[in-house]
Structure formats: structure tokens, C-alpha cells
Design a binder for these strands. Sequence first.
DNA 1: CGAGTTTGACCAGCGC
DNA 2: GCGCTGGTCAAACTCG
Length: 248
Amino acid sequence: MDAFTYNEKVVNLRSELERLGKENENLRLLIEVMSNGCNILQAQLPKMKDDQIRSFLIENERSYDSGKRGRTKVSVIKPSQIFVRTDPNDKSLIVKDGFQWRKYGQKVTKDNPSPRAYYRCSMAPSCPVKKKVQRSLEDESVIVATYEGEHNHEHDGVGKSTASPDGSITRVADDPIGPSITLDLTLSRTSKESNIPFQNIRENHNTNRNCSDIEDFVASLTKDNKFMASLAAAIGKSLVEHPRPTGT
DNA sequence: CGAGTTTGACCAGCGC
DNA sequence: GCGCTGGTCAAACTCG
């Protein structure tokens, strides 16, 4: 190996190291932000009665899919949703979750130009589970899968974390139908600017690398109603679906 | 040939 | 009552 090639490799490795360092710094910031918001909400939760939590959740979920006019009555526990990041060029609506699905319909909905596909579980003839799959309005590289019902049979190969080619990681819940929350932990650098609260903070943080500003960022985030509502909805949903044993 | 997909038609809930 | 909309049906089609 000649000196030129060696130097080139060193430069590449240094730049990679620098990039990973930045990524690490960003991740640490995000964890602090989440932790802070979570602590605040957990401190508030004991003061809220169950019905307050439920009405709060319903209100948040209404705002999440506004414009949808369901044929069925509003239920307190909404069907679970998972968010899967895919290749933006990939136009298929396929979410691999370990089950076999049979497509029975497709519709273009009013609030989203991308078509919504309707699937039924085909692993068992009597399985009542359905899912709706549609690309996110805000980020077309994200597929939103909504599950309804409960499987009445065994399944295989769920509960995995999947890594995308771009390095993003999407955690799929152990049971997408069960009472667990699925979080999209994607931190893709190529994600479009959207209303994701972290976006601006991450950029600010990149340009101003003084870590003492973290507290300011955290403070600004806790003032972000949208972020707090989302976080509260996730925590509240978890509490409603996993009620603590009574008498403690 | 069977299983899965596509797609237009149909049905039912909701707002006006 | 009417129109809009989301959800479902089912015949035609595709694929292995």
C-alpha cells in the first residue's frame, strides 16, 4: 500500500469518526429531551384521573387523523399503528410483520394522495385481523400500518428490529396487534424537514455544538405543545393499555 | 389450477 | 334526502 492510499484511508476514517461522533451527540441529545419530557409527564400523570387520561387520548388521536369519518363508533383504545421507513422509490405498500396478508381492497383517501391498501390476515381462515397500509402524508418514505383486531393463531418472526440501508432503525413491537406501543426510532439523515420537533433542534445543535445549550433546547421542547401532546399520548396510551396493578 | 392482486361497484355512516 | 367518504365485495386478471 503506498503512502497516498494510506493517507486517503486515514482521512476517510477520520471523517467517518467525526460523523459518528456527531451522530452520537445527536442521539444523546434526543435521549435527554425524551427523558426530560417523560419525567415531566409522569409527574403530572398521578394528578390526572383515568377518565381525564382517556379523554385526553381521544382528543389527541382525533387530531392525529383528522378528517377521517369512521363508520364505527369511537372506541377508547384505537387500533395500534406501526411506522415503517422504506425506500422512498419503493412504491409498494408492503409491511413485513411475520403474518401473511391478503389484500382485499385499495382506496385513495381524501386527506392523502397515496392509496390506502386493505389487508386481511390469511394465516388462519377465521382470523379477524385487518390492517390498513398507507404512506405517511408528511414523509412518503414512511409507511403507516394500522392493525385492527386480534390474531387467534400463532405467528412467526415478529418482534424484530429492522435496519434499513440508510442506517435507520425501525423497532417493530413484539406483537403489533397487542397492547404495545411501536416507536419509529428512525434518525435518518435524509429525512425531509417536517414538523418533527427534533429536526430544528438537531440542526441548531449541529451548527452550535456547545453542549451547555442542551438545557435551552430541552426547555424549548417542553414548551412545544405538539411534541408534548405526542409524548403524552404515547405515555398515556401505555398506561391505559398496561394498567398498573391496583393496590400499590 | 389455486392463491393472491387489481379495480370498479356497492354499501353504510355522517354532515349539510 | 343528498352527496361525500371510507370500507368491503367480487369478478377479472396475474403469477408461479
